[in-house]
Design a protein around this nucleic acid. Sequence first.
DNA 1: TCATAATCGAGACGGTACGTCCCGTCTTCCT
DNA 2: AGGAAGACGGGACGTACCGTCTCGATTATGA
Lengths: 194, 194, 194, 194
Amino acid sequence: MASEDKSARRRSCILASVKQALNEVEYHQLTVEDIASRAGVGKSTIYRWWSHKSELVLDTFKELTLSIFEFEPELDLEQNLNRQLLRLAKALDHPVGRAMLVVMANHRELAATFFKQYLLPKRVQLHQLIQQAIEAGELIEHDHYDLVLDRLYGPIHYQIIFFNHLPDEHYIRQLVKLSLDPLRPQAQTLMRQE
Amino acid sequence: MASEDKSARRRSCILASVKQALNEVEYHQLTVEDIASRAGVGKSTIYRWWSHKSELVLDTFKELTLSIFEFEPELDLEQNLNRQLLRLAKALDHPVGRAMLVVMANHRELAATFFKQYLLPKRVQLHQLIQQAIEAGELIEHDHYDLVLDRLYGPIHYQIIFFNHLPDEHYIRQLVKLSLDPLRPQAQTLMRQE
Amino acid sequence: MASEDKSARRRSCILASVKQALNEVEYHQLTVEDIASRAGVGKSTIYRWWSHKSELVLDTFKELTLSIFEFEPELDLEQNLNRQLLRLAKALDHPVGRAMLVVMANHRELAATFFKQYLLPKRVQLHQLIQQAIEAGELIEHDHYDLVLDRLYGPIHYQIIFFNHLPDEHYIRQLVKLSLDPLRPQAQTLMRQE
Amino acid sequence: MASEDKSARRRSCILASVKQALNEVEYHQLTVEDIASRAGVGKSTIYRWWSHKSELVLDTFKELTLSIFEFEPELDLEQNLNRQLLRLAKALDHPVGRAMLVVMANHRELAATFFKQYLLPKRVQLHQLIQQAIEAGELIEHDHYDLVLDRLYGPIHYQIIFFNHLPDEHYIRQLVKLSLDPLRPQAQTLMRQE
DNA sequence: TCATAATCGAGACGGTACGTCCCGTCTTCCT
DNA sequence: AGGAAGACGGGACGTACCGTCTCGATTATGA
């Protein structure tokens, strides 16, 4: 229906305005009024769909990153991890990602919901990929999956939040390598590498 | 001198009020006026010493954690790491730590200064400790110190910010073990453990 | 239109709150926040329409005195002057008038604008009335209109500001008489009166 | 005693600083701290002698005008009035005079005291001068002394406060003439003049 | 084809915290 | 011992946005 189209177009126009605004100012300088006027929309239209500024930002982040978390079946696990973590790092370092991190820090309840509904599933996908590799005999079994994943995700977030610095490709490749090598069947001679 | 004493007492009274207030509300509900009235102090006194609410929170975190980052010379590296990271985790999970994380996310410039002046030195200490272990032959040499440290610090911050969850002692011991084992001279049989 | 009505009602509600507040405290104790809460209105609503507390007070004085400066065509010049100056005196002695005088003294630029736009026109009206009397032959011509008017207005303001005292009807009648008598055609025997 | 000297010097230095400051800013921008630093004096020294900023300003006005209200016995009444009112007008138009007027408007109680103790005596002197002229047969008797005086003082204050304008010599001479002529024994032909 | 309803922009509103300013007091330290 | 220097508690200021609410103008529909 025409009106749904219009609604949808308006919605993405608003999210685009959030993105545009965040390219110019940080989250705590972001105003709903500014977003509304950029989108040529009334403030009430925004509050009809999002109950808070923070949710608006989370949704913008979602829209922006929906496409980047897909696995490439033609690539192997390591390559997929490299690709994925690099994309994640870039998304987090992007102004919208920064804003999302602010919201996560600011609003614990909102953060919990967003994490469970959006971020956690991505993590689960990755977990499953590793699980498949184990079943395929490419990786040995172990009993600290969470740690393995945290040691992939954690350093990247840490670099961005605390060093204020986007990890480069080399950093990420090394990170993935260090995480996977000990899990390989012939892991006896690891750490002699590079 | 008497006046310095008084000043110092007032200062710590204010910081204590911040801590107390953060035990009741989150950072974004924190009010300078509330802090002032808890401390029995005028708002202007606070703004005389701290230019923003955020700096006040960072200072409170500093005061709270000054004592926890000392190494125990009688313990070995692994034990020291365990002890230290557990304390760090607890500090970050504490309301004041949470607030500090919000400030870090919110104010990038302030965050950069705070990190360089306060957090980074702690990290450097830890780095030196590892370096000493290498020179003592307890650990082998390698060339990705940053990664090693990020893989200690990152997961802890990640757990707290995203899972909203204080890592327990077991998690941390495992984290440290996984980080150190590959660096030990007889690393051939690692990953068979527990 | 409904919205204009509402706006106007809110406006006069705010002005009424100013008046009410000034009945209890003097100008320098007057608080915008207090006015707002009396009017059941947010501080921002006040600042949306008036840029300073002082303008708010001037407007309150205007509203209060709009109706008192009309000439009564059935009365003669002297009676009109008596009536008018008495009303003026009462308005100035009223708490709102006092506050207006404070603002006039305090903010010279604001005072100039207010005087030109509001007070001066009233004075001009009075001047024209005198002029008409001259043309009607009731008063003789002369060449110091300003002085004549200043000698009517000046003493009243002076009494109120410096003697802190509302001139009574008798004072004003005498003031008017002394000002008009020398201007009457048969002025030869003046000052013998009363 | 030396210390009294010093005290007195400090006192007049403070008053001079008030005057200097008022040459640069209006009363409501005047700060005690600024005065203190101009005078090279601590704030507490000021508050030791004056309980409020407003009293300080009134005292400054006193000091500035002490000398201008003396009658010149060699001049006749009209000349003395001219001289005196011109000086008064200039004093009121001076920044310190303006500030005094603000204080008079702002603080009614303070104003009452100041008026009774300082301004009223001057007015009484003038009244006595007129009384002497009556007794000497130069002026006729009448029964509205207050009005006569108010019609001298009032217009001058009115011009300064409302027209924001220092009355010139001509204005004042005319004002005095119009006030005195009707009181002269041969007052029959007045108002024909100039 | 026109009334009638729904939708939306514009932006005013009550509210709250901000960070600033300056008051008049109080303390400290130097001379 | 007294005074400059200036920190202090207090409190109003005027600003900035929040999230809510009201109002017409603009569409979109159904009689």
